[in-house]
């Protein structure tokens, strides 16, 4: 009787000591534990059998960015995917990376109002994807917002992340020359984007009715030139000169593409209704 009781007591005491040690260890290790507990990588998340609401939306957003044609087909009007401009699923610096959640809401001149991340994403669908503006509570918008938030972990709120957007090229002193741009395009770009700009295989169309419309940011020569210089040809970043990038951008802008949805409403209606 006595023996068992003391045994129990010993056991209890040892259990108590163990729990104290465990608590102390936990307290001491917390900072390192937090540091080690980094974000699960997107590959880990994709293979997870069950995810909570946030992470499932992150994965859904990742899927939309990579295969917009399939996962967000409801609001897409052309043949592009988000990853065509936001290279490496929106993680490559100087290629419009998506780690910008901390910068929103902010005022933008484009629509003259305060923009949340939701409105920014919805405008992508209208201009770059030449489609329909999703409602602000569309699952697709919320998913992309979750993915953008996931990518922005570790960035400073309100500050501009490293390599945001595209680099601004310095003025070269010469006007962009579309004729030279055509020569560069045919030599360097046509193998992937096609001589008629329609895209070859998986490569995106850069003009034509399956490309971005006149309201897209890429339709501005500065922006397109910065993007081309920093990222094109794919795998040979920054191999073109600034002037060549400007020339190619000017050449692209001369081609036909869907109208700006803000201006030619009638044209837009016809574009959408006639296949």
């Amino acid at each position: 009787m006595n023996l068992t009781r003391s045994l129990i007591r010993v056991r209890r005491r040892s259990a108590f000591l163990a729990s104290v040690f465990a608590a102390l260890a936990a307290l001491l290790l917390t900072p390192t534990a937090l540091a080690q507990q980094s974000l699960p990588s997107i590959e880990q998340l994709v293979n997870e059998p069950f995810l909570d609401d946030y992470y499932s939306n992150v994965v859904y957003g990742y899927q939309i960015v990579n295969d917009t044609q399939h996962f967000a087909s409801r609001y897409v009007g052309n043949a592009l995917n988000c990853k065509n401009c936001h290279l490496n699923s929106g993680t490559k610096a100087d290629a419009l990376p998506l780690n910008v959640a901390g910068m929103y809401p902010k005022w933008r001149a484009k629509n003259g109002k305060r923009n949340g991340i939701g409105l920014r994403i919805r405008e992508c669908f209208v201009y770059s994807m030449d489609g329909i503006m999703p409602p602000d509570d569309a699952p697709e918008v919320l998913a992309i917002a979750a993915y953008v938030t996931y990518l922005s972990q570790g960035e400073v709120m309100g500050a501009e992340p490293e390599g945001r957007g595209v680099p601004t090229l310095p003025a070269t002193g010469y006007d962009p020359n579309p004729a030279n741009g055509r020569a560069v395009y045919l030599e360097q770009c046509a193998s992937c984007h096609g001589e008629q700009g329609g895209g070859v295989g998986d490569m995106p169309p850069v003009w034509g009715m399956n490309s971005y419309n006149r309201g897209a940011g890429m339709n501005r020569i500065d922006e397109a030139a910065g993007f081309i210089w920093a990222n094109m040809p794919l795998g040979q970043d920054k191999s073109l000169t600034h002037q060549q990038a400007f020339d190619v951008a000017a050449y692209l802008n001369l081609q036909y593409r869907p109208a700006d949805p803000r201006q030619s409403k009638f044209l837009k209606l016809l574009e959408d209704l006639l296949p």
């Binding site: 087909s73 409801r74 609001y75 897409v76 629509n111 405008e123 209208v126 329909i132 503006m133 999703p134 409602p135 949805p261 803000r262 201006q263 409403k265 837009k268």
Partner: peptide
């Protein structure tokens, strides 16, 4: 234009 009206459409 739709960016002004922000109308919700059924979509494709």
């Amino acid at each position: 234009p739709q960016p002004v009206t922000e109308l919700e459409y059924l979509g494709r």
